[in-house]
Amino acid sequence: MLRVKNLTKVYEDGTVALRNVSFEVPDGQFLAVVGLSGSGKSTLLRCINRLIEPTEGEIWWNDIEISHVEGEELRRVRRKIGMIFQHFNLVDRSSVMRNVLSGRLGYVGTLASVLGRFPHDDMEKAYASLDRVGIRDKADNRADELSGGQQQRVGIARALMQDPELILADEPVASLDPVLAHSIMGHLQQINREDGITVMCSLHFLDLVQQYGDWVIALNEGELVFEGLPSDIDDARFKEIYGKDAVRIG
């Protein structure tokens, strides 16, 4: 269970990215986060795993308030929250295998991982994760040799390595073509349904939201403007979220 209470983020230059945002995500939900570019979706996701420090508010996760944990405890929180990025954020020059194994860093001792020694179980797990996203044969390739869709699957495999209870997906398909987008969303849905991992996914296209999301929250200029079922977003709601001049294209 993730509970966000009155979350506010003000950047150093005074930009208010999030304004008093509160919502709840029950375990196992596929939550879609929508809103225009710059509405605060990325900031919201990054506040949850503390890549960005929230200015005010509380984030309760499994009954721990995690907005101020530090050091070892923060690492313990982060390793249970997987993250998938719009630009995949793989290490281009490393092999696919090494990229996937890096998902395990929160569990492995510093010295062993610096020497590149991962336990046998982790290697097995990495192959299994790659298998699951269908690119086991690419394990020894360099990450930048893969196509965009394959790179995002590596990103998913990396997140799976963390044994996550929550996956934050920051516009995971925004840099992919529609066919690939559905393939990637399918993987996320599968992980959500089969493993019961909570997914919190920011999306641009409403058809994706309606196809994959269990629940939707919408942000506009940092404020939560809508919360409900995907099917509840009718034209009036749409204009509320995206502004009067917006036209639905998907």
Partner: peptide
């Protein structure tokens, strides 16, 4: 990549 690796709890 720094963001991604940090997010794994490294």
């Amino acid at each position: 990549p720094i963001e991604a690796i940090t997010a794994t709890g490294a």
